[in-house]
Structure formats: structure tokens, C-alpha cells
Design a protein around this nucleic acid. Sequence first.
RNA 1: GUGGGUAUGGCGCAGUUGGCUAGCGCGCCAGAUUGUGGCUCUGGAGGCCGAGGGUUCGAGUCCCUUUACCCACC
Length: 376
Amino acid sequence: MYQLLKQEGRAKRGEFHTVHGIIQTPVFMNVGTAAAIKGAVSTEDLEHIKTQVELSNTYHLHVRPGDKIIKQMGGLHKFMSWNKPILTDSGGFQVFSLAGLRKIKEEGVYFHSHIDGRKIFMGPEESMQIQSNLASTIAMAFDECPSSTADRSYVQNSVERTTRWLARCKNEMNRLNDAEDTINKKQMLFGINQGAVYEDIRIEHAKRIREFDLDGYAIGGLAVGESHEEMYHILEETVPFLPLEKPTYLMGVGTPANILEGVERGIDFFDCVYPTRNGRHGHLYTNHGKINLFNAKYETDERPIEEGCACPACRRYSRAYIRHLLKAKEMLGMRLCVLHNLYFYNTMMEEIRDALDAGEFAAYKKRKLDNMSRKN
RNA sequence: GUGGGUAUGGCGCAGUUGGCUAGCGCGCCAGAUUGUGGCUCUGGAGGCCGAGGGUUCGAGUCCCUUUACCCACC
């Protein structure tokens, strides 16, 4: 159940009640594709860096270790020892990101496993079954994410198919939630809006999927090659056609600036690999812009990544030390960097919520953007 | 002391029978990366080839001298 607490312009401040606790929005979900945040980050760590929601991937967990094994182990929460909300991505995005390894048909998608090459079929029903086995808090509908450069007729057909798939997802989810051996009988379902950069297709699709009365609505297929301006424009045009009384989720986005712009346009949920992937590569977010710890100028830098930061890395380690760890390929280096970046994102979301509560989001956003663009 | 070997950008090396603005890996520097295949990709800076002399139209490549280091034998 979503409760809209406050609005500032189109920006929403809300609470999303789930069987695994309340999610304060806007929120940034921390990406742990294979039931783990890459970089040797434990779920215990997540409790220290303000993580509210963990995100895992249906496709990856289906391939390894197998959703049936996870069900046997009591579901994803028990398996990875994390009792707060988990959102599972449907596997739909892999249709896009693993392009070349797939064949899309009306019934679903044929993949080749990136692990061992074996052929896998996944359609709406399979995706729902897998996600039900994983027993995540929120399941995502199985969709197709067409390329941002796909032509109009392709996108039109693709989106119509995604709508048909959504109907099948909802039916299957209802059936599974009623089944006797289902772990999470209150699993929620978010639908996904598509339409590439064609605003009329986006709007039409938004109207269609809201008729399904889902638990939340995502906007997919953005930040895949189009410009930031196009992305913001699509958000401005599309979000107003999604129900205000339900959470909105901008999938796969993004940079801190993207998130601030997204919040301003009415987005509640975000997720992105940036803080984790960039952390592993030594790119660290600070309030004065991004820094690359691999740079030689940090070789003898005794300062923490960011002065005043309370994350596990900044509390006791210097840039010089962490740089050394990264260059020596010590796991601890990645770990500290990922922790810092996630802490940065999670803290920024907290600041955004506080600003919204105080009715000062616009001012906060401007200040944050100004600071981050400053050279240091 | 004798014999042999090596000296080419920060490090490790390629450089054919001497021939265009001397390459490569790593490193360094700067970017990219948006529902993650622990990656990958894209640029950039930096050597006049140990030093000196000679042969030649032309030498990192041949000759002489010299210096440093390595190995072996005394």
C-alpha cells in the first residue's frame, strides 16, 4: 500500500508498505543482481549504509543457483539473510542487454545462458513463477525493452506485446499468490511502461497499464542511449498518466543528477549499477563531484574519500590506502569503494526525503547539483 | 683478470639481410559505462634507441672506442 505523504510540484514523498517493512520514498534500491552486492558487500553491511531495498535479478538467479533451489532454501530473504524489501527484476531487460543471445516470440523469449550456453525459455508465466519461487517483495512484469534507436513500428508492436504479457503476468501472479506452497502470498507486481522516445506511444501505454490496477508502475527503456533531455522530456510527458496513489519506478537510473531530475518529475523508486560498478572501478561519488581514486594524485592523499562522510570507508581509511588496495587488486579496496558509493546514494535519498518533508526540495536540488559540478 | 651476454619511453620487451614520422604489453593521464557477464572500450602524454666516433645516400640495426650491469671461468 502506497501512501503519498507530501508533494512539491510533481515531486512525491511517500511511504510504501510491504510485508517486509515500510519503504520511505523516494528511494534508491541497491543492486545485487545475483543475490549479492558485487564487491564483497554483505547484507549486514547494508544495514549500516541505510539500504532500504535490495534488488536482484530473475534471470541470473534462475540460471544460477536456480529459483527452485532458492525456494527450497526458504526464499531469497532467508537465503541471503536480508529481511527488508527485495525487488526482483523480471529478466525482461536481458532481452535487451543480452541482445544477440535471444529470440523474441509472442509466447516469450528464448535465451542462451551466459553461464553455460544452454537454451532457456522465459515468458510472462515463467518469469512470475521464478519470482514467486524467489519470494521477493516486489516482482516486476516481464517486458521487452526495445532499443532506443528502434523504429516506430517496431516499438509499437513491441509495446503492444508487452501489454499482452502484462495481462498474463497478472493472471499468473494471482494464481501463484493463491497457491498453497507459495512463500510470499502477498508478492506485489509492478508493471512497466515502454515506448522508447515516442511520447504518444508512452502515454497510450501508460493509460493501458494503469487499468491493470497494479501495485506500482515503472518506466523502463530509458537511459539506454538517448540524451538526458529526451529522458527528462519523456518523464514529464508520461508520469502524469501514471496513478499518483501508486509508486513510480524509473528503472536503471542513474547518476545523482538523473535521480534529482527524476524525483522532480514524480519518481519514487530508482536503481542503478553506477554506485556499485563505479565503486569497483575506483570512481567515487562525493559532494564535490566524482573522483577517480586510481589517479596518481591520490597516492599520498591522507584525507578520507570525503571529509565528514560517515561511511565505513571514510570513517577510518585514507584515499592513499584505498588507492593502494585498488591497485593491488585487494578485495577490500572494491568493498570500501562500493560501500562509500552506496552510502552516498542512500544518504542523498535521505536528504531528498528530508527536503521534501520540509518543502525545500527545489532549493536542495539546486544546491546539490551546484556542489557536485564544482571541481575539487 | 679472461670469455660470453645485455644496454630501446617509468618497468618489461619487439624491432626482419641497415630504408618511410621507432612499435608492443604493463604503468601513467583523461574519458565512456544507467532494470551489472568482477568487465570492456576510447583517446592522450612520454623514447631521437647507454655514451663518443666511424662506414653509408640512409644505422636502433654494421665497425671501433668507452661506460654500466649480468653470467661463467679464474
